[in-house]
Design a protein around this nucleic acid. Structure first.
Lengths: 204, 204
DNA sequence: TTGCTAAGCGGACCGACGGTCCGTAAGGTC
DNA sequence: GACCTTACGGACCGTCGGTCCGCTTAGCAA
């Protein structure tokens, strides 16, 4: 009976790591390329990554888990950047909210097919997905500090709803709206929600 | 000989009509009862309605068509009522928008499981579904008449996004928000969006 | 009532997909 | 190199949306 090695985390075997990365890259590429998430099957991803199907499910549990992992890997650098910027002192809350939503929108525009896949794979509520919770919590915290916002929790939900992946896809890919046009429309909308008053130098 | 109904359009055979109604009723009941739309299969609906599966697809084309038909049958009276009310003269545009969204939200709360089913059956964009177009167009028209709204089209999308079925479901069924609490949160949000500055001078 | 016709019915059947299982391969360690 | 643990991979399974086609029956006319 071997004494239990005190490994706080088990190290990942070399082939496992290689495969994990291959799968994430393949999935990302396939979702980015196809307009409808439904047309990307788990078999497709496995084949594109050059691994067996069992490997997918062993590592990621199920389809939703795989998509979540892809998103996490894309989102992590962004999250770090957001956290850093937010820790700056003298960052006006109002501007913080505007920047946060613009960042989120830009991310969703760039990864809209992937994000659409996430929305309909989160059987059947995107609101359970981990990354949504992070966006909501971060936005709510920022809204908390903006004077005149009565219900930061609901407001955060409402604002995030305005940039849901399928709406973004609809406006850009079907209604031919330009990314920048969408960004400024969103900025105007957010400004309305935060109250007609422009950034006041009184509080910070 | 019984006077024949005018046959300007092809009359529906008696058994066909009976079956159509049975299917719509069965589908409505099943979706209302189950929390996850995915757990209601076409076979379930056929069985509950006491018809064969072929009948479903013959009449409604596919799953999305069936769900759309159920929604249409639920929505029609509401649409008529909305149209009537909106034709009243002296109906302040601002109030019109508030009422419209409250009506839509109430409808979605009452039929939230059905509406959730619609959202994920509209492979994969709810924005193509006919009923969304109607809500958007109606709301946009009302927003057009509210002074101070810069982009009625996008604003209509953003406001409708705030009452998407899965968000409503999340807030009520998982976050334990009360329907009335949600309605007033929405009303406050809409008021913010319409601008702190109502037609009359003075900030809200 | 009877006979005719076409609209409608229904369930066996199909292909695709998400997910499982288990015999086999290979990395890590001594 | 021996041994053990971890991971691999693809055959396999159950379910589901959707199709097909032989059978039933409503509706009509004489």
């Amino acid at each position: 009976m071997a004494p239990r090695a005190e490994r706080t985390e088990r190290t990942e075997r070399a082939d496992a790591q290689r495969n994990r990365e291959a799968v994430l890259a393949a999935a990302d590429a396939l979702f980015a390329a196809s307009s409808s998430p439904h047309s990307v099957s788990m078999d497709d991803i496995a084949a594109a990554a050059g691994v067996g199907k069992g490997t997918l499910f062993r590592r990621f549990g199920d389809r939703a888990g795989l998509i979540a992992a892809v998103i996490t890997s894309r989102l992590e650098p962004l999250q770090r950047a957001v956290r850093e910027v937010q820790e700056q002192t003298g960052y006006a809350p109002r501007q913080q909210v505007l920047d946060l939503l613009d960042t989120a929108l830009t991310f969703k525009i760039e990864n809209r097919n992937l994000m659409s896949a996430a929305e309909d794979a989160g059987i059947s509520s995107p609101y359970r997905a981990g990354h949504y919770g992070w966006w909501h919590e971060t936005l709510r915290a920022a809204l908390d500090r903006v004077p005149g916002v009565h219900d930061p929790d609901f407001t955060a939900h409402a604002l995030l709803a305005a940039i849901r992946a399928d709406l973004v896809t609809h406006l850009i890919d079907e209604r031919q709206m330009s990314p920048d046009g969408l960004r400024s429309a969103l900025a105007a909308h957010v400004a309305d929600v935060l109250g007609g008053s422009p950034p006041e130098p009184g509080r910070s």
